[in-house]
Simulated assay, not measured.
Amino acid sequence: MSRTEFSLLRRRLLGAASVVVVSAPWLAQAAPQGTFIERTLHKPVPGGVAVVDLGELAQAPHVTFNGYRVLVVRDADQRWKAIVGIDLKTAAGRHGLTVQGAQPVSFQVGSKRYREQRITLKNKAHVNPDPQQQARFEREYKEQMDAYASFRPEGPSNVVFDKPVPGRLTSPFGLRRFFNGEERNAHSGLDFAAPTGTAIKVPADGVVTIVADYFFNGKTVFVDHGQGLITMYCHLSAFDVRKGDTVRKGDVLGRSGATGRATGPHLHWNVSLNNARVDPAIFIGAFQP
């Protein structure tokens, strides 16, 4: 599929209903080797997404993976599909979904090797925080983990996204990160070059669940898009929303900056499914195998 065809198909999908239903006959014909959602999002590797066929059921089934509810949509072929987030630490091999009232369904996870990145920080506290800073980080971390684990039954308005900022991609998802020579958690999001003050636009409808200034992440916004699809935006210079706001695709959440643990102005963007951080590049057609 060409980049132009991809862009056209994506634009036509971005206004879907709260439960994503893609049923136009022309769309199924345009993707003979799988429906658009499958061809776009199915990247079953650690840190990726598996699109799993659940069949032609009368209604959306209740599906869990590793104890967390999974996003379920009806695709162009009128079959229900589970859109499963795969954690970076997931081992290659067969994995199973629990489907309420039905037999378990399995899918295959492949392997993927991620690069390393070494960063020098002037603020040594952002490498080894003191006890007070560590206590602050732990409070903030719990708040974020609770937000990632939430599940609203209402489905997302769309599952294929426009970029939240127009800048070029810089640090990719999954990098093994070394700060001042010390290894830390792998990069759990995707970075965009964005001069301070650039508008950050939400790529799907949702509810704002966090607006906070964090020790590592700086000024941060979380948006709950429904059914466990959560996005996070970090290092902002300013906010344009408040906690509890309802936002629509294209609304401005805030402005890019360099707050928190950042070496320069940029946007760090996370996407989470069923409490697993996954590669945001998948959702904007920029995934690199």
Rank of each mutant, 00 (worst) to 15 (best):
L253A: 03
S7E: 15
G93I: 09
A17E: 08
D213V: 08
H225A: 00
G244R: 06
N128A: 14
D213C: 07
R3V: 11
E138P: 04
R118I: 00
M145N: 08
K243Q: 14
P46D: 02
V159E: 03
T120W: 13
V51P: 03
H266N: 13
A258K: 15
F6P: 01
P166R: 10
A212G: 12
W80V: 09
F6H: 06
S106D: 12
M232R: 15
S237H: 12
V52H: 07
P131Q: 11
S7D: 15
L8Q: 15
L41C: 01
E116S: 13
G48D: 02
E116A: 13
Q288L: 07
V84R: 04
G257N: 06
P25K: 03
D162R: 14
L229P: 00
Q134F: 12
K163H: 08
F173E: 01
L88H: 08
A30H: 06
D53H: 11
A82R: 13
A58I: 10
G264C: 07
V51K: 05
L190R: 09
K43A: 05
R79G: 04
V223H: 01
P104T: 01
G228N: 07
R184M: 10
K201E: 04
F239I: 05
F287C: 02
T220C: 12
S157V: 00
A204K: 00
V278G: 04
V99N: 03
T246A: 13
S23A: 11
E182D: 13
T198I: 06
D53T: 09
D77T: 00
P203A: 01
A16I: 04
G174T: 01
H126G: 10
A276C: 11
G167R: 06
V51N: 03
V73G: 01
K219E: 09
G167D: 02
R136W: 08
P265S: 14
L13C: 11
P153V: 05
W269S: 01
T209W: 02
Y68R: 15
W269E: 00
H235N: 10
V45G: 02
A30W: 07
K112D: 04
V105I: 09
H225I: 00
T231G: 00
P25A: 02
H268K: 08
S272W: 08
E154F: 03
P61R: 09
F161P: 00
R261Y: 03
P46C: 05
L236C: 15
R79S: 07
V241E: 05
A212S: 15
V278W: 05
F107P: 08
S150E: 07
K112E: 07
G285W: 00
V72A: 04
T35G: 12
L88W: 09
G15H: 13
A238I: 12
V20Y: 01
